[in-house]
Each structure stands twice: as structure tokens, then as C-alpha cells.
């Protein structure tokens, strides 16, 4: 994996990114910078462009214009999804996606960094270090006792954790996490908050979330997206008292 140059403290930098789908402007000259080691939350009403933003960063969607950099000098627009993942960008989908027919252990082992080409995968033998790493991750996400079970049998919350564990197994520098606590119980939500907070500042985390209580519990900085651009940025308190934000998204109820 190439080292990411973060000498100026910036992990992810988007400049004037625009994406349109048959006339619909999903992202409109969006610019965003995320510092190394930061835990950033992205909020915004439906259709604000949060998922499209993730798609652009991970190579799933090509922007019409603008630039996307990882660190100082890696132009993410030059790479496809798999290459971007290998550069150290991990992504958790909104809909949990794990491998249901394989054991929890194998799900994590498959995500372990390295051995990505077919030939390397064919010759791969897990080392003791690999086994330890999988065991460590399984404990971290609280699924060590279930490691031998097929992932298809996990509960919704456990599936979300497994996917986060798989992301961590990739050894990413930047994690993009789409709605991690949707459908979780209060207790599961709290554990997820702890887990995400334990990742920084070694890793940089960007979370898209609707649950404002959860956002309040984890985020130091919040970016509010509206109509494909960043409306405002700041602490959760500053953002929640911003008149424009209240108007477009939060409503008077908050």
C-alpha cells in the first residue's frame, strides 16, 4: 500500500465536485476537506448528496467535474473501486453487506490486508500474525464467540459490526461509514459510538448518519449537506443553532 502524504494534515480533499444524473444535480460544486485523525459526521436531508459523495470518493461514481485527493498527491479519480480500497479507503454500505455463507471468521480473514490478486489468493496461507489479527478484530467487534458461525445468521446489529470489522481488517487510513446505527437498539448504538471513537486519531473516519443523538455523541465536527453542497460546517452545537440549517433540515423540533 502506498503511503498517504498527509504532511499538511489533510486526509481527504474534494474541490468543486459536481455530479448529475440525467439532469438531476446530485452534487453541485461540492468542496470538503477532512483532516487526518478526524471523526467527521455528514448530515443532511434526503437527497442532499451524502451517498453520492461516498460513491465519488470510493470510485463508484465518476464526477462530471472537480477533483478528489487522498492526502496531498493521490488523485482518486485515476483509480477504480478496488484500487481505491487498496490505497486505504474502507467503505461500509448503508445496507449491511457481508458474506452470508461464510463464517464470521472467514469474513474477517477475507478482508485482511494484502493478497489481493488471484494468484496471491491461491497461494495464501494464513500466518500466525494473521490469525491473531482476526481474533483481535473478532473480539473488538464483540463477535469472537460467534466466529465459527455463518455470517448469514447474525442479527442486524452484529452484521453491522462485522462489516465494520471487515473494514478494519483492510487496515484503512480513511473509513467511510454510511448510517452505522440505523435499526440498532439503544445499547448497540452506544457500543457502536464507542467503537468508532476508539478508531481516531489513528484512522480518519467519516460517518453519514441521520440519528442526531448519535451524531452528538461522537462528532467533534459536523458538515451539513444541502442540495449537493456543504451548507455549513462546525461543532454540533454551532450547526444546530445555525438558522439556515434549521430551515432546510432540522426544523424547529430540534
Amino acid at each position: 500500500m502506498a503511503d498517504i502524504d498527509t504532511r499538511h494534515g489533510v486526509m481527504l480533499y474534494l474541490d468543486a465536485v459536481s455530479v448529475s444524473f440525467s439532469g438531476y444535480q446530485a452534487l453541485n460544486e461540492l468542496s470538503l476537506a477532512v483532516d487526518e485523525g478526524e471523526l467527521r459526521c455528514l448530515i443532511g436531508p434526503n437527497g442532499a448528496g451524502k451517498t453520492t459523495l461516498m460513491d465519488v470518493i470510493t470510485g463508484k461514481t465518476r464526477p462530471d467535474s472537480g477533483s478528489v485527493f487522498l492526502g496531498q498527491d493521490i488523485n482518486l479519480l485515476d483509480h477504480d473501486e478496488a484500487a481505491i480500497a487498496r490505497l486505504g479507503v474502507g467503505r461500509k454500505f448503508q445496507k449491511p453487506s457481508v458474506f452470508p455463507h461464510q463464517r464470521v471468521w472467514d469474513n474477517l480473514a477475507l478482508a485482511l490486508v494484502g493478497h489481493r490478486s488471484p494468484w496471491q489468493a491461491l497461494r495464501y496461507k494464513p500466518s500466525t500474525a494473521d490469525e491473531d489479527r482476526v481474533a483481535h478484530l473478532a473480539k473488538l467487534i464483540g463477535l469472537y464467540d460467534l466466529a465459527g458461525q455463518a455470517a448469514g445468521g447474525l442479527s442486524h446489529g452484529q452484521t453491522q459490526w462485522l462489516e465494520i470489522g471487515m473494514l478494519l481488517a483492510q487496515d484503512p487510513k480513511l473509513l467511510l461509514i454510511d448510517e452505522p446505527v440505523a435499526g440498532m437498539t439503544q445499547q448497540e448504538t452506544e457500543r457502536t459510538a464507542e467503537l468508532l471513537q476508539s478508531l481516531v486519531p489513528d484512522q480518519t473516519v467519516v460517518v453519514v448518519e441521520h440519528d442526531m443523538a448519535f451524531v452528538r455523541s461522537i462528532a467533534r465536527r459536523v458538515s451539513v449537506l444541502h442540495e449537493g453542497r456543504v451548507l455549513t460546517e462546525g461543532s454540533i452545537d454551532a450547526v444546530q443553532t445555525d438558522a439556515r440549517v434549521r430551515e432546510v433540515y432540522l426544523g424547529d423540533a430540534c
Partner: peptide, 26 residues
């Protein structure tokens, strides 16, 4: 092998395999 595990995984969740950094096409 791990190769077989990747192949089975891409049958079930192709997107996940791609975003783990595997070149699905190869």
C-alpha cells in the same frame, strides 16, 4: 483456498468484494 473464498464471496456480495480491494473481473 482464499481464491475460492473470494469467488464464493463475489457470488453473494459482489460490491463488498470490490470495495475490499479485490479486482472482481480478474
Amino acid at each position: 483456498t482464499r481464491f475460492g473464498a473470494v469467488v464464493t464471496a463475489l457470488r453473494d456480495q459482489e460490491g463488498r468484494v470490490r470495495f475490499l480491494g479485490y479486482s472482481v473481473a480478474s
